[in-house]
Design a protein around this nucleic acid. Sequence first.
DNA 1: ATCCTCATGTAACACGTTACATGATTAC
DNA 2: GTAATCATGTAACGTGTTACATGAGGAT
Lengths: 190, 190
Amino acid sequence: MSPQEKLPATTYAVMGLLSQGPRSGYDLASYAEMSIANFWSVAKSQVYRELSRLESLGFVDATEVKQQALPDKRIYSLTKKGEAALIDWLNTPQPQPDRMRSMFLLKVFFGNLIDSDELIRMIEDHGQDARETSIRLSSIAEQLETDPNMEYVLATARLGAKVLEATADWADETIKALKKPAKRKVNKGR
Amino acid sequence: MSPQEKLPATTYAVMGLLSQGPRSGYDLASYAEMSIANFWSVAKSQVYRELSRLESLGFVDATEVKQQALPDKRIYSLTKKGEAALIDWLNTPQPQPDRMRSMFLLKVFFGNLIDSDELIRMIEDHGQDARETSIRLSSIAEQLETDPNMEYVLATARLGAKVLEATADWADETIKALKKPAKRKVNKGR
DNA sequence: ATCCTCATGTAACACGTTACATGATTAC
DNA sequence: GTAATCATGTAACGTGTTACATGAGGAT
């Protein structure tokens, strides 16, 4: 409905966090780190940039808060207009699906250039990491299951757990597959 | 071994592509799009920037090729020094595991702000996309299975297929879970 | 004839990351 | 008493994305 110009997702992420209640930039940054960071990380400095932008758009209001010991701060809250923009964005389906981005896969892809044992070791590590994080997310999910208000948060935790579990399984299978054939040595000379 | 300053992964991606044979910037860009784009996309303009950087580092050589109909071009090839740097990088295990980044999950996370039917529709779409791409990657993987030289490329295709399959399964489960409880309406006020 | 794509790339901008600043408290 | 952390943010830089340029050949 609103003929909005397109803003980056991070802007909406900040608004989303603000929709749960007013916060300072600093608080928002730490809150982001504990909540959405698993699938959308936002650096501190980005938070501040987005807040200025949002303020100039009228999507947030700020109130100065003086402090004695700590530096003064500004508490931001989402305006009606901001909330409308956020809801509008949330309702808009993405044209393109998310693209994966993995340095690890890049290394695997060019794996023929290095010693296969070394690559296998890297895949093992990657698998273990994935397994551990998957378990961590599963236990978070378990705790969330009891709270009916958290169903969407729960869903994101479950996806993370599931994807990482698949990754860990892949690592196991891949290592097996790579170990079977006659072990090839480093392909160094061109 | 080499006391290298840290370069971005994209630089090594370009070197990796060049390790398969000399190409022009344009060719590299299209080649990237057909090969590594699934897990590491590189824009045309980035390719050129990386090539200049690599040239000034002595990691690639360029030769001018005059053309009559088409614009002249420069063909780049990886030098020994470049190959060494690439191999060095490939051998270095990543300190941090890759972080996921998904706009879709961002929307799900804040899903309580919109109508649940709309969100369900988005999850359905996402799941279908994932399923389709998973199948596409599986069939690519199948073709790669016959070629013993492609084992690492195969591995990346399989991971993509597996992760996307898990995503699609998650979508199905999540939709079921969201439909069960008394359907809640839009949470618009405050 | 005009429009689109191919084949080459360059330029501008915007997002994301890392480093810097600063004073009070807590830790050792 | 020096060092790390907390609580606030700002500044600088570098990666990544989008738009611009240009001429030939193919499509309709």
